[in-house]
């Protein structure tokens, strides 16, 4: 057995391919749903942390700090295996989505906060002087400018979420990595893992390249 038979075995790959595609579909579902929920949660948390009264802002801050420090794997195990003891039983998909978006929401919140705080004070003052309310100021003036700043770091965060979906195999989600390891076991050959790696890279590389392009464009100044 040489390295090609072991890691790049065409026959094994052909057999495993349908399993990998089923896994990819699950991974994409997990990834997209968690990214979207994380973005919504992150924006809400960022606004609460910045503008809510202190008795709301302070717990939000604690949430953000805890969920940025807790290992995703631990959170996933708690949600899937521990919550049923207090009567909350979530499906594997719901558990994985919940864990991913709770953590992604905490990271996104800090990204949104940094983006909003990067907008000069004068923009808030000009809006206030014109009689715009806080909601109008956010929607029409601050967020459109902040979004341009936060898109690169948010895309980075989304890439991390997609990679972290691999942890969902712990709660028996048949995601891309889980399918690959099962195919590996069936064939007694690690080629399917290499296949999975190639699929992850094929999906995430374009995103990484996109972030690089956006960052260099924003670095040029106005970026318009």
């Amino acid at each position: 057995m040489d390295i090609f038979d072991t890691f790049f075995n065409a026959g094994v790959m052909a057999q495993a391919w349908p399993m990998l595609l089923r896994g990819l579909w699950i991974t994409l579902q997990l990834g997209v749903v968690s990214i979207l929920l994380g973005l919504v949660l992150g924006l809400i948390l960022a606004l609460l942390r910045l503008y809510a009264p202190v008795w709301i802002a302070w717990p939000v801050r604690v949430y953000i700090d805890i969920f940025r420090s807790i290992p995703l794997l631990v959170l996933l195990i708690v949600i899937y295996y521990a919550l049923p003891f207090v009567g909350l039983r979530l499906s594997a998909f719901a558990s994985a989505t919940a864990a991913l978006s709770m953590v992604s929401g905490a990271y996104s919140a800090e990204i949104f906060r940094a983006g909003i705080q990067a907008i000069p004070r004068g923009q808030f003052e000009a809006s206030a002087a014109l009689g715009l309310g806080p909601v109008q100021t956010m929607r029409d003036v601050i967020l459109p400018q902040a979004v341009r700043i936060v898109i690169p770091p948010l895309t980075n965060n989304s890439i991390n979420v997609v990679k972290d979906t691999a942890l969902a195999s712990v709660v028996a989600m048949p995601d891309l990595l889980k399918q690959a390891t099962q195919a590996q076991a069936l064939a007694a050959n690690p080629t399917p893992l290499i296949g999975a790696a190639i699929i992850y890279v094929a999906f995430l590389w374009p995103l990484v390249a996109l972030v690089n392009r956006m960052e260099s464009r924003l670095g040029d100044g106005q970026g318009r």
Partner: peptide, 20 residues
């Protein structure tokens, strides 16, 4: 407050136009 601000126009030293 919003009503007062709507009746009072302000021009700033640093313009503060909306760049987007």
């Amino acid at each position: 407050l919003a009503k007062v601000r709507a009746e009072v126009g302000m021009v700033f030293q640093s313009f503060n136009l909306f760049p987007h």
